[in-house]
């Protein structure tokens, strides 16, 4: 086996250069993230803490090691051991991929080449490239995000971001986003400002100001913004919350909404990162469960799609 890099131990993950954006995954053939067949790049790190987050590997801005027990063949530790604690192997030495380093530094040239591989599919489907996260527009990620989006946009490929937009954006950043992003998939979660700040640490007013700034920079919010509403039992599924979100979106000039029923696809990731998960065991929602919520959005005048186009 190749020699280990001394700095890279599970207890002390390698630090990227300061402020360097990290990414965890490039997912090809994504079909619910902005229209058509898309490639989604997941940037790592998020200032918010939604209890239902399905991408916990993208919460921290730092590299992390994850360990999937079901893949482990216990080549270097006893059965029953915890790979994050007991296994001496580096992620790159793990034969099965059970242990993985989450968070590779973004190399825009490399990512651009990768996301452009499916250009034939984007052309035929009206798809493109979507940046997600984490919060892809959070400070440490913003520069890399803008650079990659600009490259893709210049190449004539459609771009989208999945973002809270509840992050500080300079006038310059807003102007550049307006120029290089075709579709903004913007979260509408907890409508009440205080509730939102308390539960998920997110200020919806900041989001709305950024939307207005984008509008001022020439973005037609009716055409280029989709309100994304995760419907999470006990957090966002109350009719009053949905209606408030829908009204707010309409007031801002947004015409389309994606209703995203709560799912448990992220549960295993919490285990692999040894992180607590508040939503463990909570039942997933079906399309039928969100019919009433769709109806509310439609009453408020939003063109509504379950799970996104």
């Amino acid at each position: 086996m190749p020699a280990a890099t001394p700095a890279a131990t599970p207890q002390d993950p390698p630090r990227a250069a300061p402020r360097a954006a990290l990414y965890t995954n490039v997912q090809r053939f994504s079909i619910h993230d902005g229209g058509g067949i898309r490639t989604v790049v997941f940037l790592k790190g998020c200032p918010f803490r939604c209890p239902w987050c399905c991408n916990p590997e993208n919460l921290s801005f730092e590299p992390e090691v994850s360990w999937k027990g079901r893949l482990c063949i216990h080549c270097s530790m006893a059965e029953g051991g915890d790979g994050l604690v007991d296994c001496p192997r580096m992620p790159h030495e793990c034969p099965t991929g059970a242990k993985e380093l989450m968070g590779k530094p973004v190399d825009v040239d490399e990512l651009f080449d990768l996301v452009m591989r499916d250009v034939t599919f984007y052309e035929e489907s009206g798809g493109g490239v979507t940046l997600s996260g984490g919060e892809c527009l959070a400070g440490p990620n913003l520069g890399a995000a803008l650079e990659l989006l600009a490259r893709v946009h210049e190449a004539g490929v459609g771009t989208a971001v999945e973002s809270t937009l509840a992050v500080p954006l300079s006038t310059d950043a807003v102007a550049r986003l307006a120029q290089v992003v075709d579709v903004f998939l913007v979260d509408f979660k907890v409508a009440d400002r205080e509730g939102s700040r308390r539960v998920v640490l997110l200020d919806p007013e900041l989001r709305d100001r950024n939307l207005q700034a984008l509008s001022a920079a020439g973005v037609d919010l009716g055409e280029r913004v989709v309100a994304r509403m995760p419907i999470v039992p006990g957090y966002t599924d109350g009719p009053a919350n949905v209606r408030a979100n829908a009204r707010r979106a309409r007031e801002l000039g947004i015409r389309r909404a994606d209703v995203l029923p709560f799912h448990q696809l992220g549960e295993g990731k919490y285990d692999s990162l040894n992180k607590d998960y508040a939503m463990r065991g909570v039942r997933q929602l079906s399309d039928g469960d969100v019919a009433g919520i769709v109806a509310i959005c439609q009453e408020e005048g939003l063109v509504t799609v379950v799970r996104g186009e």
């Binding site: 058509g36 067949i37 034939t120 035929e124 489907s125 798809g127």
Partner: peptide, 21 residues
């Protein structure tokens, strides 16, 4: 994956890409 009209459109796009490739 192929649910709804959107699913059909993606499959059609996939087939057209298959032809181009």
């Amino acid at each position: 994956t192929l649910a709804g009209e959107g699913g059909l459109e993606k499959l059609m796009a996939y087939l057209r890409a298959f032809s181009r490739l």
